[in-house]
């Protein structure tokens, strides 16, 4: 039988895979990968915040991720720099600030690697509760705003002109993204969270003809990646999060190359 720690890792990563599938697809459709990346990396400041005030990491990461999203939204209205430059500035800046703050607060013995790449084998029962509880919440809200989200993804201005409350729906989506980042951060770390969202979606794209098909295939890919990645990790002693992301990336590349060869590169 599986060791308890391995079982917990598996249950945690599988829960995350199911939540990440629809969110990851939406991030890919809306070209928000870099946006999410910036939110995730700013979250290291959330880790520092929890070290400073002694609260729960998940909550402070959630707060900081939301603040980062708000800041990005405000900065996206300026017209001096294009958005990708602003995001680059923010994401490297906040990563640097986060590393310094974390090291300063936790001393030289701090496990920075754990925050950056996660530690899936250290998942506790509480973490599992966060993942599955938060995951059900995220999926529930997504279910209700799925159709307006799709319409915004197809053509934002058309959707808003037709009466979709664009601002509120997008704010809700960012909140869901922040929750997902917060519950995933212990497992995958701030550097791999977004990869877990977008890589399975990228692998699924060539096989899908409808948005829902793409979500379903994304979930299957993510689950397969989790199982294979953890097996690889158990066998070779590789760290869990990176092993999962590596397997997923290989699957996505294979899928894209196959689609290209088959002439289905649509």
């Amino acid at each position: 039988m599986l060791e308890p720690f391995l079982l917990r890792a598996l249950v945690a990563a599988l829960g995350l895979a199911l939540v990440a599938a629809p969110l990851g697809a939406l991030v890919v459709w809306q070209r928000m990968a870099y946006f999410g990346e910036t939110m995730a990396q700013a979250s290291l400041l959330g880790v520092a915040l929890s070290l400073a005030v002694g609260g729960d990491v998940t909550v402070s990461v959630l707060v900081v991720a939301m603040l980062a999203a708000l800041l990005i939204l405000l900065l996206s209205r300026q017209r001096v720099l294009p958005l990708d430059s602003v995001l680059g500035l923010l994401h490297h800046g906040s990563l640097a600030a986060g590393v310094i703050a974390t090291a300063a607060l936790a001393g030289p013995s701090v496990d920075l690697l754990g925050y950056l790449f996660g530690d899936i084998f250290a998942v506790s029962q509480t973490d599992l509760a966060w993942i599955w509880g938060g995951g059900v919440l995220v999926l529930g809200v997504l279910y209700f705003i799925w159709q307006p989200l799709l319409r915004l993804a197809v053509h934002e201005e058309l959707a808003i002109a037709e009466g979709v409350p664009g601002g509120r729906i997008k704010a809700a989506f960012m909140l869901l993204l922040a929750i997902t980042i917060a519950i995933a951060i212990k497992i995958l770390g701030i550097l791999l969270v977004i990869a877990f969202l977008i890589v399975p979606a990228a692998a699924a794209r060539p096989f899908a003809r409808t948005p829902e098909q793409m979500v379903a295939i994304t979930a299957l890919v993510a689950v397969a990646g989790v199982v294979a990645g953890l097996a690889l990790s158990a066998r070779s002693d590789a760290p869990g999060g990176p092993a999962i992301v590596l397997v997923l990336a290989a699957m996505a590349l294979t899928s894209l190359v196959r689609a290209r060869i088959a002439g289905r590169g649509d």
Binding site: V28, W29, R31, L150, A153, V154, H155, E157, L158, A161, E162, R205, A208, R209, T210, P211, Q213, M214, D266
Partner: peptide, 14 residues
């Protein structure tokens, strides 16, 4: 509404 441009991202299957 028929907007001036209607370019759909290839990432979205629909």
């Amino acid at each position: 509404y028929v907007p001036q441009r209607f370019d759909i991202d290839r990432a979205l299957p629909m």
